[in-house]
């Protein structure tokens, strides 16, 4: 048992160390940032495609706009806001965390808590 605990400890140390170093050295270049953002945007002229995946004219325009804005130093949030003002929330595949969508985002976590309580209550009388 002692050995086990030692392994676990060692493992956690190594893992956290590596994670931090990786996080520090991971610098995203502009194309990766464009990809990340455009994957979360809907191509308004296609059927269920993201702007990144699509080669439609609309998508190519948006890709250019996003790239220029990122180069100009705008944050992802600003760009999304700009696009929503222009095309509506429909363009975002990741729904905004606002009042309307509170249920959408909260629901899975509410269920998770209920599930956890269920297991705890059911297993209460069964301690061995």
């Amino acid at each position: 048992m002692k050995l086990n605990r030692f392994y676990k400890f060692l493992y956690i140390i190594i893992l956290s160390f590596v994670f931090f170093t990786l996080k520090i050295f991971a610098v995203e270049n502009i194309d990766e940032r464009v990809k990340k953002l455009t994957l979360e945007l809907r191509c308004m002229t296609c059927q269920n495609q993201s702007i990144y995946d699509s080669d439609a004219e609309f998508s190519n325009d948006i890709k250019k706009i996003v790239k220029n804005k990122l180069k100009a130093g705008e944050s992802e949030r600003d760009i999304k806001k700009f696009l929503v003002e222009r095309y509506g929330e429909y363009i975002l595949f990741r729904p905004l965390m606002n009042y309307n969508n509170i249920f959408l985002w909260g629901f899975p976590f509410i269920l998770l808590i209920i599930g956890l309580f269920f297991v705890l209550i059911k297993s209460k009388g069964n301690k061995v």
């Binding site: 994957l39 809907r42 990741r94 729904p95 309307n100």
Partner: peptide, 15 residues
């Protein structure tokens, strides 16, 4: 609300 929104990949991936 008579408003169109999308719930796509990013939502499902993060939930």
């Amino acid at each position: 609300y008579n408003k169109r929104i999308s719930v796509g990949g990013p939502y499902f991936n993060s939930t």
